[in-house]
Amino acid sequence: MSDRTHAAFTPGRSGRADGAPGLIVRECVGQRLASLIARRGQAERASAAAARAFGVALPVAPRAVAGRGATFIWAGPGSWLVETGPELDDVEAFLGATFAGTASICDQSDSRVVLEVSGPRVRDVLAKGAPIDLHADQFSAGDVALTAIGHVGVHLRQVSAAPAFRLSVARSYFGTFWHWLSSSAAEFGCEVVAPDPQPARDAR
């Protein structure tokens, strides 16, 4: 099979077999990703451009905001990861139309594997690796963290209060990360469901 994410990552149940799975994992495919980095001194103009074109300002704190046709995910001071729909052939050209002169854009669509994780034990699983307080009082839908889980860099964000989290991992590290995630979830039972080609909508 071509274009596979990782040989060991296949739909189905793993770990504890009885009861409802504690962790549900779905790969998010089809979305386009790009880095957006403000030019020197241009962050506010870039944000204004985003507001005009997408209806949202660029987040200045670790948050993700969903605009019309693009979600802007904080990735550091003056830096964002932009997620758009699958219909775009050229995400750089699409964003370039809005941010020319205010930000540099770089296609990252293939650089990450993005998983959406949910299920009743999702926080317990993530607590085995994420040094981030994901308690509902501290971290809620739209919150973002750049962190490391099991020695692998992870761009983490909560997408719903349920809760569900989106974990974006550098593609070359995915095998290691999946090994960590599946073994950490094993005691609760882990279910990988087939990818959803339409990226789920972010909470506003």
């Binding site: 980095i37 403000a38 020197r40 770089c106 296609d107 293939d110 650089s111």
Partner: peptide, 14 residues
């Protein structure tokens, strides 16, 4: 910091 440069790793993109 005065230089107008933006860079990002694309090692995993290609």
């Amino acid at each position: 910091p005065e230089l107008d440069v933006q860079f990002v790793s694309v090692s995993d993109q290609w």
